[in-house]
Write a protein that binds this DNA or RNA. Structure first.
Lengths: 260, 260
DNA sequence: TAGTGGTCTAGACCACAAA
DNA sequence: TTGTGGTCTAGACCACTAT
């Protein structure tokens, strides 16, 4: 690993540093390897530690690095492609949904925002199922599924436990599925994990996440709202609308750059 | 705007600061308003400017703030919902594609990555159309569409100008459309704008973007690869698979939080 | 105990926009 | 010219992990 001399360019040092590091990483490091520590790197490039960290921050945001306190800075594995679609991921009642882990299930009056997004009156009872999505054994996302009580007419008196083992949650999911979902509308945006999500994701607060908001419809009316937060560092959301040619082992480094 | 006393909590100062600022912003500020300057805010909260900036960084990543050098820090407008789907956005030949602006169109040997993703041999000629996506007059995304030469058999000798006025680009798009696209496969991930994209987006390098990679298929084979980078600060990508109930004027603040 | 990344400080200077 | 955010520094201390 060479030591750069950081040319006197008009671009910020940290950005130039990032570029140098990208090249170095691609050329001399591979997944799982540990970079020299920050103080070492900083002195090697002749910059303050804070400046070096600014460059590392960028690379971490891009999912190229993982930093572990007490350990070091490692080269991250390529992002995992996570299918986002009711069919592919084995939603509610589906069989292979072993990649979901129920967290809890509560019934409460809808908050203003939830009510708005569900098209119901604020304060109306809403059942909320929280669960985690696992991919390759790793926690990749949290999800809160909100279903108005009015949609599940005869929800049996299932104990709406907090921290339950998942049985009540599955009950809600199963009933929702039975309605026959015939429409989904999604949105994806960038966000940061608040305290709740951060704990579930086992990440520090402020971790960047991809927020996926899904509206489920049945017979032309909204029956559910799911808000999922995916770890932005390790996830690549995939929306396979059709069984398309699978030629994409592009697990190289860059997400297939711009025009060459 | 109150001045916080920053309780001695076990959480980082900058994170607590962020929380305080979120509350303050929601309560006392509205879109377009300017926050007190950083030095002022820092002293008001009794922290170093760097710490305050760390909190502002978070809020900017969330799309709640916009910082303009020489001006100040403003409350950002709610994110714009941007439909991502061939039909809805009026792709290639469509009429209402006035929201696209051609940048240039070049033909060159495919890079290794592009070739891989397109399932062709590296070095094979690929036509690349670059264009910008405008929403409400604002540049929201850049797109590079790569089409193998072998897919467009008799591409007339259109001048593949760099910085052209868009005519050659439209030609490629039209021909591609004529093939009959019958499949799309997408992925979304977080990235940062490199130099090229940054210039086109009129943003500084390192700007967070949502990278949308789309594979287009026709008659079972890949005919195109589009790599779009959307401004993560101002965009909310929407994937409306069906004409679903449009009840979402949830342009409040939070992207519809977790369980209440 | 030693080594790592995470947080925080106080200050300096620069680039940019407006008056 | 003034005020703003953007960059950079040198140093301190903390929290965590391994040994």
């Amino acid at each position: 690993m060479a030591q750069g001399q950081l040319a006197a360019v008009p671009e910020p040092k940290y950005w130039h540093l990032r570029t140098v590091l990208v090249r170095t990483i691609d050329a001399e490091f591979s997944t799982g390897q540990i970079l020299p520590n920050e103080r070492e790197l900083a002195s090697r490039f002749g910059v303050a530690r804070a400046t070096l960290r600014q460059a590392l921050d960028q690379l971490e945001l891009e999912g190229r690095l993982v930093r572990r306190r007490g350990i070091g800075t490692l080269i991250a594995a390529p992002r995992v492609g996570v299918p986002v679609s009711r069919r592919e991921e084995g939603w509610p009642g589906a069989a292979r949904s072993q990649s979901w882990r129920s967290v809890d299930c509560v019934s409460a009056p809808a908050s203003a925002q939830i009510a708005l997004a569900l098209g119901i009156a604020p304060g109306e009872t809403v059942h909320t199922v929280r669960r985690l999505r696992l991919v390759q054994g790793q926690i990749m996302a949290t999800e809160s599924l909100h279903v108005p009580d009015s949609v599940l007419p005869q929800l049996p008196a299932v104990p709406h436990v907090v921290g339950g083992d998942g049985e009540p949650a599955r009950s809600v999911l199963r009933r929702l599925e039975r309605l026959g979902i015939d429409g989904e509308s999604r949105s994806v945006e960038l966000g940061v994990a608040e305290a709740d999500q951060a704990v579930l994701l086992e990440r520090p607060p402020g971790t960047p996440v991809l927020i996926v908001t899904t509206q489920y419809a049945s017979a032309g009316r909204l029956v559910g709202l799911a808000v999922s937060t995916y770890r932005a560092d390790t996830c690549k959301l995939t929306f396979g609308e059709t069984g398309l040619v699978e030629v994409t082992p592009v697990e190289a480094q860059q997400p297939v750059g711009a025009a060459s």
